[in-house]
Design a protein around this nucleic acid. Structure first.
Lengths: 115, 115
DNA sequence: CCGTATCCCTGGAGATACTG
DNA sequence: CAGTATCTCCAGGGATACGG
C-alpha cells in the first residue's frame, strides 16, 4: 500500500505548471473531454472512447482525478456492477480549457481524427 | 541517426488527442506559456524559466515544436552564439489554450506557484 | 461488469562530458 | 552561449491473470 497520489504543497514556477499538475496525466484531458461532452459515463464507456488506455491506466487516472476533486465516482450497488463518472463543480471549471483544446484540434489538425 | 520526431498521419479518436499530439510533450505547454508572455526568448532564458528541464530535454522539446511549425528558431551568427525562439503564426493560435490554462491555475491553484 | 494484483520490459529522462 | 553525444537507470505503463 503506497500513499503517493498527487502533488499538493509543491511549488510551481508558473500557473500553467500548476494546472498541469492536476490534468497533465497521460489520459486525463481526454477523459475530461468525453465527460464534458456526455455529462456522465460508465467505466466501460470510457474504455470504448479511449481504447489506447489499458484498464489499469484508466483506473489510475480516474482515481487521481477523483482524489483531486475533479470528477465524482458513483457506484450503484447492483448486479452486475455499475459505476458512473461525472464532473464535480471544480471539474466543470475546466470546460474552457478542454473546449479551447478541442476547437484548436478541429481547426488546425483537421483530418487527423475520426469525425 | 533516427528519424522519429512527430506523428503526422496518425489517426486520433477526438480533437483533444490531436491537439495533445502537438503540445502534449512534458515541457511544451510551459515553453509556450513563456513565449506567449515574453514574445521572444533566448535559449538560456528558457532554461532559467524552466530549471526542472535539462538541456537535453529543453532542446528536444524545442526541436519538436519547431518541426511542427509552432515556434521559430532564429540563429544569429555572432560570437558568442545567440539563438532566439518565438511563436510562428500557427503557434500564436495556441494562445487561447495556454491563457485558459494559466487563468485556471491562478484561480484554482492559487498559492501553489511563485507569484 | 468493474475493477486489482503481478510480472516485466522499454524508452523517457537524468547525469556527465564534450564541441563549434 | 547553445547546444550534442553517451551512458545509464528506473519507474511508467503494457500484458496477463484473477477477484467481488
Amino acid at each position: 500500500m503506497t500513499k503517493k497520489i498527487s502533488n499538493s504543497e509543491k511549488l510551481f514556477h508558473c500557473p500553467v505548471e500548476a494546472t498541469l499538475s492536476q490534468i497533465g496525466g497521460k489520459y486525463k484531458m481526454i477523459i475530461l473531454c468525453h465527460l464534458i461532452h456526455d455529462g456522465t459515463l460508465r467505466y466501460n464507456e470510457l474504455q470504448k472512447y479511449i481504447p489506447q488506455a489499458t484498464a489499469k491506466m484508466l483506473t489510475q487516472q480516474l482515481k487521481e482525478l477523483e482524489h483531486d476533486g475533479i470528477i465524482h465516482r458513483k457506484v450503484y450497488p447492483v448486479v452486475p456492477p455499475k459505476t458512473e463518472y461525472s464532473l464535480t463543480e471544480r471539474g466543470k471549471t475546466l470546460t474552457d480549457i478542454i473546449h479551447s483544446m478541442r476547437d484548436w484540434g478541429r481547426k488546425y489538425m483537421a483530418g487527423s481524427f475520426e469525425e
